[in-house]
């Protein structure tokens, strides 16, 4: 797989604040690549540099062999952006929003009409074609943002938290559409805080924290390597930790105390489960490990502000 995006020692500063602190990564053509991180970890700043709306402070960033730069119209022409915030034109209808945007991309009117009809259908907004934006639900607005991002037949799509604030139905519809696009060979870059979303969509992810990349890899591999297969959450007073840790040693690959809960991670849950039954502890949850465990383990389980 050839790389469509290559970043080397990429830095982004806003005044004194370092948002992206010297990261390097490669994204392959046709891949779905996820940037995960708590708020303010630098993932949005990174994707803004990739789609050329924010200048690179230092380091290098190339997209499709060209340097990313705010005046690089060639790159902007081949990129579709599904923004985090709803940036639709409230003065216009659904159809007019798309017509105006296709003009921004110099798509001839006749061709634009064909694409708009296709895309409105793709995101299931046919019935809302002539509605004003204020008459749409949040889910519909997000779908329209996808339709808008597709107008220029992009080779690269950047989805910055595309499902924030959506109900499960709307979220699943958006995931399906994004997977369909990926199946068509489009490269997809996703930033998200929903670990389930990353697991559903991404081939490869990086976990960012304080402007740096903490870990990179396949979601399933990261879970396996960092956590194991299963997690036991036991709600017991902290004074009993030492005793319990001694009892479960040999069954788990690691443990962590957060607030009122003691977490045990393990590679093979079978023996741990037996031991837990034997100990007959109250308030115990035993479940498969998820990407969320990896995320929380790496970025800390306490609130980040």
């Amino acid at each position: 797989m050839s790389a469509i995006i290559t970043a080397k020692d990429l830095v982004k500063k806003y005044g004194d604040l370092t948002a992206v602190d010297g990261i390097s990564f490669e994204i392959g053509e046709g891949e779905c690549f996820g940037f995960l991180g708590p708020n303010g970890a630098g993932q949005t700043s990174t994707v803004k540099m990739i789609h050329c709306v924010s200048p690179v402070t230092s380091g290098s960033l190339t997209v499709a062999g060209l340097p990313a730069h705010i005046d690089n119209r060639v790159l902007k022409k081949m990129t579709g952006v599904i923004p985090q915030e709803i940036t639709l034109d409230n003065d216009l209808t659904v159809y007019e929003n798309l017509i105006v945007f296709s003009k921004f991309f110099d798509i001839p009117r006749r061709e634009a009409k064909v694409r708009i009809a296709d895309h409105i259908k793709f995101v299931e907004l046919e019935a809302k074609r002539n509605s004003r934006i204020s008459q749409l639900s949040t889910g519909m607005k997000r779908r329209l943002l996808i339709a808008r991002a597709l107008l220029n037949n992009p080779r690269l799509i950047i989805a910055d938290e595309p499902t924030t604030g959506l109900d499960p139905q709307a979220r699943h519809l958006i995931w399906q559409r994004l997977r369909q696009l990926k199946a068509q060979g489009v490269t997809l870059i996703l930033t998200t805080q929903y670990m389930e979303e990353a697991q559903q969509l991404c081939d490869r992810i990086v976990i960012m924290y304080q402007g740096k990349i903490l870990k990179e890899g396949l979601p399933s591999r990261l879970i396996e390597d960092e956590i194991g297969r299963e997690v036991a959450e036991i709600r017991i007073p902290a004074e009993e930790d030492a005793k319990l840790i001694a009892q479960l040693e040999g069954f788990s690959s690691g443990h962590e105390r957060v607030g009122d809960t003691l977490f045990f991670y393990c590679k093979d849950g079978h023996n741990l489960r037996h031991k837990l039954v034997e100990l007959d502890l109250p308030n115990t949850v035993h479940r498969p490990a998820t990407l969320e465990d990896v995320f929380l383990k790496l970025t800390g389980r306490s609130l980040i502000e």
């Binding site: 789609h51 709306v53 705010i70 923004p83 639709l88 110099d106």
Partner: peptide, 15 residues
């Protein structure tokens, strides 16, 4: 309020 410039800047239309 409308953040229209944000979406404009992501297209070949320059600032």
């Amino acid at each position: 309020h409308e953040k229209l410039y944000d979406s404009l800047l992501a297209t070949p239309v320059s600032a």
